[in-house]
Design a binder for these strands. Structure first.
Lengths: 330, 330
DNA sequence: CTGAAAGCGCTAACAC
DNA sequence: GTGTTAGCGCTTTCAG
């Protein structure tokens, strides 16, 4: 593979001139530039990102750390990140943390050794120490959903609280008289916000009872189990707002197995907007987050940071949207 | 961040000695080694992968190029690759090619500039030229499902042809009298092999007709449409072997919407073994590929190649397994 | 067993 | 405008 030296030799200039045309930095005579470009062409020269990295401490690669790519929320997000990264000339390393602080910390270290340009953390476990560390070693980062502090992080999320209220209102609108909620792990902010949105919406209803709120694990089986519990406690429920789509699918399974008609007897509304909601029958109504946009924005903001644009350290909160489907069409 | 020089200084040795203990290469006095290790400890020194890359032309990072991470087959595969890569000290870059040869070629180039250690191509579009190019620039690679030539590629796949026969046999075993097949794009090897397996299994049956084979696109809507076509052509079909799970889920949707009971009236068997088969109701019987194992094996073989072990350039063909669920339990 | 020195391929002062 | 040179942090001969 040709190096910058080969190009310089062929073009009859010095390597710094070549470097200048490569980086469009400093002045270069139009003629010489042409020569250099020609030499680059004929040698099919491509600068080595690694050598550049060594000098710049930046590698045009970003990392995406997420809990588990197998969780159906993340593929779409990853796709968005990769799409915009590639467009902007970046490459993306991905890592699964399983939500474990130590795995995530280990990744930060590895990535540092690789002079990673920046990191996107998705619904993870970042704590104050990590944030300080990242700041200390000067690695730009962006956080999805969760952040230990609002002040010094750029965080992207969608309107979970409002979305929950929209969900409940929708169920009321279609005529539900007693609405339950299956919520996710309360260590997870999104799960908490959605639960709060539900509570605030229903607490003054005469049918309200705390036992209408059943915990789940944000996974399929959690939704299945929660629905079973709920049916035992409150057989008269006629609407369920489920904290995420995966559990909503689980709940749907349980209801179908119990011979309950969805939506006629019980309507279901999920949250997230993953593709899975369209794979099941009946298709699930959901409060859709703009998943792709969230990923794209994360990548854009991160790369802006990397390239020196000032990016506000604040929460970017995106809108959610009610997507009605058969599970709430009585 | 401390460099190798800092360590050398603190330990009172030369940098080459430090390098030796770092790489366990060459002889180092036990005493000096201890000193060096201590210095490394107190300085929290971590060698720079980038600097190493510059000298070694290897970066301890591999790439995974796949069509689209959003396709539910790939998350599990990716997870496996990342798991074993991490365990073996590698990091993974992922890229979506959308099955487009040019995107894939572009990635190869970018990765080359990054001194990528090796590449895994999943069900992609690699052609002879690409293979030659990769060999020329000496980047180890492994291919999943498809390869332009058997001789000079390490390819991993599962028994598609045999799996298809198992599927048909299973449908016969549970009493199906007329079995249709929805097949995937014939440019894709796996789709072709599965179709051939079906044909070979049924071509001598008295009920056989070529019109029982309906094309699909390996996606949800393809399965939905194909099932509709099929029901018009052959309302008396009582078993469908679908070329992949995603289409099988689509077919199931169509049948449920038509008020057809699955499995009583029509049994369905898919292929792949993705999680989605357990999310729908009834759950789908499928010919499960060992998806995780395939990814893990790909990563292992690739890293063996990278690290200089001889790895046979041949096809590693893994077993598939019938997983019976309610969609074929009459 | 250990150190000196020459790169790996590139960027960025600093001269000319 | 363009060339020289000194690194970036590490590995690896080659002496000693």
């Amino acid at each position: 593979m040709a190096t910058i030296r080969d190009v310089a030799a062929l073009a009859g200039v010095s390597i710094s001139t070549v470097s200048r045309v490569l980086n469009k930095s400093g002045y270069v005579n139009a003629e010489t530039e042409k020569e250099v470009l020609k030499a680059i062409q004929t040698l099919k020269y491509e600068p080595s990102d690694v050598a550049r990295g060594l000098t710049n401490k930046k590698t045009k690669t970003i990392a995406l750390i997420l809990p588990d790519i197998v969780n159906p929320f993340f593929p779409a997000l990853s796709r968005a990140v990769e799409d915009v990264a590639r467009t902007l000339g970046y490459t993306v390393i991905f890592g699964n943390s399983d939500g474990q602080a130590n795995k995530e910390k280990a990744y930060i270290n590895i990535l540092k050794q690789k002079y990673i340009s920046g990191i996107i953390f998705a619904s993870h476990n970042l704590n104050r120490d990590d944030v300080e560390y990242l700041q200390k070693i000067d690695i730009p980062f962006v956080v999805l959903d969760r952040a230990p502090s609002r002040e010094n992080c750029t965080v992207i999320r969608s309107k979970n609280f409002e979305g929950a209220k929209i969900a409940v209102q929708h169920l009321l609108d279609i005529g539900c008289k007693k609405i339950a909620h299956i919520y996710g792990p309360q260590e997870i902010n999104t799960a908490k916000d959605r639960l709060m949105g539900y509570e605030e919406s229903v607490k003054n209803s005469n049918w309200y009872s705390p036992t209408l709120m059943v915990p789940g694990n944000f996974k399929l089986d959690g939704g299945m189990n929660a629905a079973r519990v709920l049916m035992e406690r409150h057989p008269d429920v006629d609407g369920i707002f489920v904290g995420n789509d995966l559990m909503a699918v689980g709940a749907l399974k349980t209801l179908l197995r119990l011979g309950i008609n969805v939506p006629k007897q019980i309507a279901i509304c999920g949250f997230d907007g993953i593709n899975l909601t369209e794979a099941v029958e009946p298709e699930l109504t959901t409060i859709a987050q703009p998943i792709y946009e969230m990923g794209a924005l994360a990548a854009e903001l991160l790369i802006m940071k990397i390239e020196g644009s000032r990016v506000e350290n604040r929460i970017y909160e995106l809108e959610v949207k009610l997507v009605q489907r058969d599970s709430t069409r009585k």
